[in-house]
Amino acid sequence: MSGGGEQWVALSALQHLLYCERQAALIHVEQLWREDVNTASGRLLHERVDLPGHDARPGRRVERAVRLGSERLRISGRADLVEYHPDAASPTGWRPFPVEVKRARRKAAEADRVQLCAQALCLEEMHGVEVPEGALYFGAQHRRQAVSFDVTLRTRTEETIARMHALLAQHRVPLVPRAPKCEACSLEPLCLPHVTAGQRRVADYLKQLVEHVG
């Protein structure tokens, strides 16, 4: 989905950006990808819900692999599941409830919440109705975690979208310090953090030197 020749951000890019700015650029600027055991298991889990379709369940209607987009934010992507709950206060009689499927519960879930909130912002624009909450579903534990789309999360989500737009506009892969999370990244062999970390230190030194001379 695109409009006016402007760059749009993929919903999945938000999670990549919050994990690592360099990872986000490698994937969404350089179009690089490498699968490992963790990404493969996550892909297989998503394949179970990624086939478009719908079904009716008691008190709700469920749509799978729902295409989403927001002209205002210039973001687009797909929701794993969107439940439509009956709501007399909604103009359509239904209120969307996005559900994002994850392989396993993680310690830091901010990126998951931001990605889910971005889906809600798309649904609000598409349906003209407020979407106050959604849920993360962790496949390994077969458990749901409710997520409230409060002002703080909405602000954080829009800030992250703006950051991703800026990263795409620069059209370059930034240098970032090496961190413990690099070991768990499937792109580590392509990113070469042990090499680029040194480049980052040199770049910072040269920048400081220029500022000092100026």
Rank of each mutant, 00 (worst) to 15 (best):
K181Y: 07
A13Y: 03
A162C: 06
R200Y: 12
S41P: 00
L18I: 01
L26V: 04
N38F: 11
Q115E: 12
T39W: 02
T39E: 11
L81Y: 07
R78F: 01
A146G: 09
E158A: 07
E100I: 00
E110Q: 12
L167A: 13
V29D: 05
P180F: 04
L51V: 15
S12P: 03
C185S: 06
E6F: 00
A140C: 02
R154T: 13
L116F: 04
L136G: 07
E83M: 08
V9T: 07
E83N: 04
T157Q: 10
C122E: 03
S12V: 04
G198D: 12
A25Q: 06
E159F: 00
A120C: 03
S2L: 13
S148A: 15
L192V: 12
T157H: 11
H54F: 10
C122D: 02
S186C: 09
G134Y: 00
L187K: 02
A166Q: 14
R172L: 13
K207S: 14
L81M: 06
G53R: 07
K181P: 03
A184P: 08
P58I: 09
A162V: 04
E183C: 01
H46M: 10
V66C: 01
H127G: 02
G53M: 02
A111G: 07
E21H: 09
W33D: 11
A169E: 15
D80Q: 01
E83K: 10
R48Q: 15
A146W: 06
A111I: 06
R48L: 15
E35Q: 14
R143Q: 15
E158C: 12
C122F: 05
V129Q: 12
V131L: 08
A203T: 09
P86C: 02
H54L: 12
L123C: 03
G139A: 15
E30M: 07
P132G: 09
Q115A: 14
R172H: 08
C182D: 10
R105Y: 09
T92H: 13
P91N: 04
G214N: 08
T196L: 13
W33C: 03
R78Y: 06
H85V: 15
A25T: 08
T92D: 11
